[in-house]
Design a protein around this nucleic acid. Structure first.
Lengths: 192, 192
DNA sequence: GGCTATCTACCTACTAGTAGGATGCTTTCA
DNA sequence: TGAAAGCATCCTACTAGTAGGTAGATAGCC
C-alpha cells in the first residue's frame, strides 16, 4: 500500500528532524516539504502533533528495546554486551552529519513543554533502559568480568545518564571521536 | 537605575524559562508577561532574540566559571572540590520544582537550531568545564586520593557528560534524589 | 533640547489545525 | 459485466493564534 509508505516516510522524516532540532523546532511544514506532500495530508495520518510525536516515540521504543533485548539474549560476555549497547547510541550519532542525538534524549530536554502521555513514554523508556543495563552489569559482576564498586543499579543509572549526556555534549564538541573516548573510559571503570 | 533592574529582570526570567522549556519554546511574550512590561520594551534592551540568548549565556558562563574557579582555588582535598563541583549542578536542579536543567545543557540540546556565535559559546563552555575538571582530577591523582584508571582528561570529559546527562534524565525520572545517587556512584568510581 | 525608557499599534512570517472537494481504487449488487 | 456506492488518499483554501521584530509617539529626567 502506498499509504503505509507515506506514513512511514512521514515518521522517518519527523524522527530525523526531532533528532536534529527537537520537537518544538520541528514543524508540519518542514515534514511536508521533505516528504513531498501537502501539510494537510500529514494531518490525515497524524491529526495532531502530539499524535505524531507519540507514534514516533512508540516506534523508536519498540525498535530500540528489541535491539537491546537481542544483545542481551546472545551468549556473549557482559563486556561485549555493554560495548554493543553503547554502540547502538554511537550508530545514531554517526548516521547523520554528527548532528543527530538520541530521540529520547532530545525529547527529554523538551520534557516540560510536553503533555502527560508523552512524558510518561519518556520516563518509561529511561526506566526500561536502566533495568536492562542493570541486567548486563549483574551478569558481568557474577562472571567476574566487572569489578566496579557500588550497586549495579546505581551504576546502570550512571551509565544511562552518561550516554544520553555524552550524546548531546559530543554533538557540540568532539563528535563521534569524543563519544568513543568516553565509552572507552567507561569500560575501564566498569571493569574496575 | 531602574533600567538596569529591568534588564536584569528580563535576563532572570529568560534564564528561568530557558532552563525549563528551552530557547525555542521561550518567547518574548512569556518574558513580557512575567516581567510586567510590553514586548517592545524587551526589544529595546535586546534587539533580537539572539542578542538576548547571547547575553544569557555570557552571564551564566561568567557566574558559573567564577564559582568553579573559587572551588579550585580553595586549599581543599580533590574529593571535596569534585563534590562541590557536582553540587553546583544539583543546586540548579533543586532550585525550581525539579524542572530546571543546566542552562548550557538545554541550549546544547537545541544546538542545531542556533546560529554560529551562540554555538561557539556552548562549545567553549564545555571545553572550559572539562579543563577545570581535569585540574581537579590531576590534583586527586597526585595526592593519591583518586585511583581511577585511564587518562584524567578522558575522565573529565566523562564526568562532564555524565553531569549534563544526569540533569536531563533526573528531570524526567527520579529527580534530585536520583542525581545525588549518580554523583555518589561517580565518587566511588573516581576514588577507585 | 536631548536622552532614556516605555508605550501603542502595527507588520510579516509561520504555527497547528479544519473544511470540503477531487481523484481513483474496491467492493457491492442488479 | 458494468454501473454505483464506498472508501482511502491527497489536495486547495482557509482559520485563528503566535512568533520575532519595527515605527513612531509619549513621558520624565539631566
Amino acid at each position: 500500500m502506498n499509504s503505509i509508505d507515506t506514513r512511514t516516510q512521514i515518521l522517518d522524516i519527523a524522527q530525523d528532524l526531532v533528532q536534529r532540532v527537537g520537537v518544538n523546532a520541528m514543524s508540519y511544514q518542514d515534514i511536508s516539504e521533505a516528504v513531498g506532500i501537502r501539510k494537510a495530508s500529514i494531518h490525515y495520518y497524524f491529526p495532531s502533533k502530539d499524535d505524531l510525536v507519540a507514534a514516533l516515540l512508540d516506534r523508536y521504543n519498540d525498535y530500540f528495546l528489541r535491539l537491546v533485548d537481542g544483545i542481551i539474549a546472545q551468549p556473549d560476555s557482559a563486556e561485549v554486551k555493554l560495548r554493543r549497547y553503547c554502540s547502538l547510541f554511537e550508530a545514531t550519532l554517526s548516521s547523520g552529519n554528527g548532528d543527530k542525538a538520541c530521540l529520547y534524549g532530545m525529547v527529554g530536554a523538551e520534557l516540560v513543554t510536553l503533555k502527560h502521555p508523552l512524558v510518561e513514554r519518556v520516563t518509561t523508556f529511561y526506566r526500561d533502559n536502566e533495568a536492562r543495563l542493570g541486567q548486563i552489569l549483574n551478569q558481568g559482576r557474577e562472571s567476574g568480568e566487572f569489578g566496579f564498586v557500588g550497586d549495579p543499579q546505581a551504576m546502570a543509572a550512571l551509565i544511562f545518564s552518561l550516554l544520553e549526556g555524552g550524546f548531546l555534549v559530543a554533538r557540540a564538541h568532539g563528535g563521534a571521536t569524543q563519544y568513543r573516548a568516553i565509552v572507552e573510559q567507561l569500560m575501564q571503570l566498569v571493569k574496575g
